[in-house]
Computed example of a mutant assay.
Amino acid sequence: GQTQACGTTDGLICSIEKVLHNLTDNTILQPVTNLVGALVDPQTGVLSPLTKPLDSITDVETGALGPVTEIVDTLVGPEKGLLDPTLDAVNDLLTGNTRSTTDGGLIDLVQGTVGNLLDNTPLAFVGNLVDTLVDPDSGALAVLTGPLNGLTDIDTGGLGAVTELVDALAGPEKGLLDPTLDAVNDLLGGPSAAADNDGLIDVVDGTVGNLLDNTPLAFVGNLVGGLVDPQTGVLSPLTAPLNDITRGQSGVLGPVTTLVDNLVGADQGALDPTLDAVNDLLSF
């Protein structure tokens, strides 16, 4: 969706306005967003005597509550927000416009997503069964799935925007849930390498640190470490064996650690930007 500039600050009110524009521009709901802007815009809105100070205090660069805006931007910001692909796809669904680089229709996408989840795992036969049933060209149900696939084709179908929305969520290349699906595939497929052969306790300890370090709640992280650290923690007789058995490269349950690391790992986890933003907020 197209966004519009707001005011002269980079605060929470402007951020919310941009998100609304991203969601509704060029759709039948755009008048609603325009009305919201007319009310809350910190420079020109009817409520600007209230919203301007709020926008200023939440300015990312200068406001005391800037981290609040950073969290919102990390989640739904119109450029790099975690949910931005989904918001774009909803905008496309409302306007009928599609911009996805994915080819084909909804059935093609479902086949790709199932393959992304199950290929090279003991459950791969389920994916093959799905293909045998729903493939729009050769499947047993092709008489139904073929026309549906054509109707939802991103380039030519009248309902192509539906496919783009699903692609933004679960597409096997750039979907919002793709890192999670990849991690589940790793878990189902057997042991795979986690960074530095870390175990589950190592990853959890790092995640807690990523969330709480350098904040007033850092003592909670230190307390957790003092309890669960597999080398020195009070509970190390329990946590050390668990850590060993879940090591990414050598543990029998290493894929569990890989899955957790892909979700909340302190370096490249899917939710790492959100955890960083919460840490910034708590650091205030």
Rank of each mutant, 00 (worst) to 15 (best):
G63T: 04
A64M: 12
T8C: 06
I154D: 03
D205K: 07
A183K: 08
L159S: 07
E164P: 00
Q111S: 07
V264G: 07
R99Q: 10
Q30V: 15
T86I: 14
I28D: 12
D137C: 04
N34Q: 15
V208S: 12
G269P: 01
Q43T: 15
D84E: 14
D213Q: 14
G96F: 07
E61M: 11
G1D: 13
L87G: 01
P49L: 00
L188P: 00
G190N: 01
L211D: 07
T51Q: 06
G157N: 07
L212Y: 05
F284I: 11
T232S: 12
T8Q: 11
A64F: 10
P67S: 02
D244I: 04
G190T: 03
P31V: 15
L177F: 09
Q249A: 15
L176A: 05
V126S: 10
S283F: 01
D267C: 05
D108M: 01
P147S: 04
L227G: 09
N120F: 09
D10F: 05
D267A: 11
A183Y: 00
T33K: 14
L47N: 03
A270Q: 02
T101S: 12
T8L: 12
G199I: 01
A170T: 05
T58E: 07
N120P: 09
L129V: 12
G37S: 15
L151K: 03
V203Q: 04
G157I: 01
L94V: 13
Q111V: 08
H21D: 13
F284Y: 08
A89N: 09
G251M: 05
P255Q: 05
T9L: 13
T232K: 04
D92Y: 13
V19C: 13
A64D: 13
D178E: 12
L20E: 00
P216C: 00
G248P: 11
V130K: 06
V166C: 07
N26C: 08
L259F: 14
L235S: 01
T156H: 07
L93F: 12
P172G: 02
L106I: 13
G269Y: 01
E173N: 09
D198E: 06
G7M: 08
A89K: 03
G104P: 00
T58V: 11
L109H: 07
G105Q: 08
S48R: 10
F284R: 14
N262R: 09
E17W: 07
S48P: 09
L212A: 12
G11N: 10
V68E: 13
V220W: 11
G175T: 03
P191W: 03
S250E: 03
N26V: 14
A124H: 12
E173I: 10
L20I: 02
T62Y: 10
V32A: 01
G171L: 11
D244P: 06
T239Y: 12
D196E: 14
E173D: 14
G150M: 05
Q111K: 10
D108R: 01
T232A: 08
L39V: 15
G150Y: 08
G199L: 00
D244Q: 10
T74S: 10
T156I: 13
T9F: 13
R247T: 00
P31D: 02
L129I: 13
D205C: 05
A270T: 03
G63N: 04
L83V: 07
A266I: 05
